[in-house]
Design a protein around this nucleic acid. Sequence first.
RNA 1: GGCGGCGUGGCCGAGUGGUUAGGCAGGGGCCUGCAAAGCCCCGUACUUGGGUUCGAAUCCCAACGCCGCCUCCA
Length: 463
Amino acid sequence: MIRLFDSVFGEVRDLDLRDPGRLSMYVCGPTVYDLPHLGHGRFTLVWDVARRWFTFRGLDVHFVSNITDIDDNIIARAEREGRTETAVATCFEAHWWEAMDRIGVARPNDVPHATQYVAEMVELISTLLARGVAYPTSDGIYFDVSRVADYGLLAGQPLESLRAGARVEANDEKRSPLDFALWKNVKSGEPSWPAPFGDGRPGWHTECVVMSLGLLGDGFDLHCGGFDLKFPHHENERAQAVAAGRPFARHWAHNGWVMVGDQKMSKSLGNFTSLTDLLEKTDARAYRLLVLRSHYRSPIEVSPATIADAERALGRLDGFARRFDLPRLAGRRLEVGSTFAWPAPALELYERVARCLDNDLDTPLAIALLFDALSSANTAADRGDESSARELALGVNALFGALGLALAGDGATVDPASAALVTQRDEARGQKDWAEADRLRDELVHLGWIVEDSASGTQIRKS
RNA sequence: GGCGGCGUGGCCGAGUGGUUAGGCAGGGGCCUGCAAAGCCCCGUACUUGGGUUCGAAUCCCAACGCCGCCUCCA
C-alpha cells in the first residue's frame, strides 16, 4: 500500500485509488514566459520520482501535466519584445522540454495546453454563472468564494480568517478580496476568445480545473504541485469544481521549495537561477541526487556547495557502476519492478527500500540504504565474493534506476594513442620499471585521463 | 493579525521515546611499487529553559531565532 502525506488532512494516509491498480495524477505545470528555474527543476524531479516509483511498484499511472501558454506574463513579455504571445510561449516551451530532457524527467502521458481548452473553460464559466456562483464586473467574470461552504479547506483556515489577512485592493468591484477572476475581458491588442459573456481570456485557476477534469475525469486520484500553489491556486481550482458539482481530486500533495540562502526562490524576489544555467556546468544527475537526498516536503538549499557535494557523491556511484560494469538504466523509460530478477540479497534490499518509498516517498532513507548496500557490495567484492557482490550491485542499480538516476558505468571511448600508453605502462609495471610507469601515468593524466590500477591492469577514464 | 513549518555533529541532510541514518569534507589504518579506487576505524550532534518519564534530539509548556502562505510564484 502506498502512503502519502495529504495536504487536506495534514497527515500521511493510504492512497485510496478511484480504480484499484490505476493512478491518475495531475501536476500543475509551468507558465512558459521565461527559462525554467531551479524551483521548476525541483518540482518536476519530485513528481517524476513519484511517478516512476508508483510505476515501478506496478501501478498503471496516468500522468498529466499542463503548459500554461496564455497569461499576463506572456502578454507582457510579448509586448515588451514586439513578438506575438504564441511566439513567446512556443519559444519558452521549447526551452522547457529541453531542460526536462536533460534532467531526465519523463514526458507526461498528456500535456494539455491552456489555449486548447478555452471552449471547455467557457462552458465551465457559463455553468458557474448559471448557478449564481460567478458574477460579472467591468473587467471580467469573478468567482464568489462565499458560495463554497468549505472554502479554505486547503488553506487550513476558514474563509473569515483568510479574508482578515487579505490585502486591501483599491477600487474593486469584487465582492470579496478573495474572489478571483475566471475570465478577463478582452483589452486591445491582447489575444482573446469568443464567449457568450464577452470576448476575453481565461484566468489561471480555471485552466487547471478544466484540464485536469477533462483528461483524468471526475474524482481523479492525486493533484500535486509546489506548496505555494496550495493557496490560492489549488483552493480555487477545487472551489470551481465543487461549485460546478463535480468531484475533484481525492488526494493533494505538495512539494517544498528551493531556498537560496535563507529565502525561498521566487519570482517576486527575483533571486532565481535558471535550470538551463545550472545544466550548462553540472551533471544533471547531481541535481536529481540532491533532490532525492532530502524529503520532498522539505525545503532544499541549492548552492554551488550543495551541488558540488552531490557531484562528488555521484562520482562514487559512477565508480561503483564501473567496478561492476552495471547496465545503464532509467533513461526515458519507466522501469517496472516485476521485470527485474531479484537474487536474495537484492530482493531484501528492494523490500527495505520499498518500505521507505511506499511510506510518503522517503527518498533520503532509501538513498541511505542504497549507499549502505553499495558499501556491502564493495566489501564482498574486496574479499573475493564476486557473485554475491554483483547480485547486490545489480539490485542497487535497479533501484537507482527506479528513481530515474542512471549510474554511469560505461567509460569513455579510449583513443588508440592513449590505449597504446596504457599498454606500455602495463609492460613497464610488469618489469617493475616504476620510473617509466610513473612517466606514462603523468602523460595520460596530461591527456585528461584518471588512471586507476587494478588486478586486471591499468584502467583509465575521463576526468 | 490568522494559518503552517523549521532550528541536528565542519557542511548538506534523515530520524525514532531506550540499539549505526546516509552523503560530503577531515583524521588514522589496511591494500598498493607509489598513487587512484575500495575497505575498516574516529569526531560521540540534536537552539535555550522548564516539565512528563526508569529513560527525550524524539512528548508537553515557555522563550529565542528563522522561514513560508494569506499578492504573481513550483
